[in-house]
Design a protein around this nucleic acid. Structure first.
Lengths: 86, 86, 86, 86
DNA sequence: CTGCCATTTTACCGGC
DNA sequence: GCCGGTAAAATGGCAG
């Protein structure tokens, strides 16, 4: 390949590739910031006496719709009784 | 506790708790959207013939500073030769 | 280094390294087999009408000691009531 | 259901369920022990001057067959040159 | 066969 | 500074 440049190595379009990579890097950066914000909220809550682990369970439960949540809880309850786990 | 309300159950300040939970939920929502965007970029790149797995490696390598990257690569190379893995 | 061999590359003791790697590989192999066995049990249970997801929760609950389990469940319950999540 | 016992709660066969759970628990126990063994090997290697992170990469590379490994490495190399990452 | 979800592994962060 | 636990990433199994 005669006119091979950094933008076109072995048939790979370097410009296009770099553009994708940079878009991803920007998005990863944003995501990282949001994760830091979330950690901060948990930390603040903890400072006011709340238990972060339990809060995470609440977040999960709220994310499920009510019907699913109830169905799942009832089934778990049933299984627990079946094996005698209180 | 006589005046126990939904906002103050067993000494737990429901309003404060709910506020934390909602802040977290908003942030989680944003994060989720960004993750979707990232997946989309990989998907688009894949559609144009790039290999997503290799792209992820590039992103990781670029995130490391040059010195660390080179050190790590040299060490791996050394170990490979030590056990005869080409 | 004059007498550098595959067993001693750049000061790295190839024999020792290979021995560690091989021990790890054997253990990883065993682990993989056990994981397959576990999947098989869940699969069999599923074939007999049990819900694997709920079973996994049972396994987790049984792994916690009773005191921890009860404490955690009570705290979650308290928080749920505080934010009005049933 | 009149003769409901701990072995048959709400139509759930407690004995069968418990048997599955216990099989899983035994397997999980074994798996946990093996994981501990693996960690121990890495730790021992570290004590003798090896870098655990790099060792993990070796294990991974050895698990791939030679053709795949070479193909992947060549592709990564190509991409790196295409975006000018040395 | 592809995309999706769960598990597993890796990396990170906070606590001791 | 290290260790443990927690969250993120990557891999692998499963379903459609």
């Amino acid at each position: 390949m005669e006119n091979e440049t950094v933008e076109n190595v072995g048939g790979v379009a370097g410009d296009a590739l770099r553009a994708y990579i940079e878009r991803i890097e920007r998005l990863e950066e944003e995501k990282k910031n949001i994760s830091a914000d979330i950690r901060e909220v948990y930390s603040e809550a903890k400072g006011n006496g709340f238990d972060a682990k339990i809060m995470k369970k609440l977040v999960k439960l709220r994310a499920m719709d009510r019907a699913d949540r109830q169905e799942e809880e009832e089934l778990l309850d049933l299984y627990r009784r079946a094996i005698g786990l209180e």
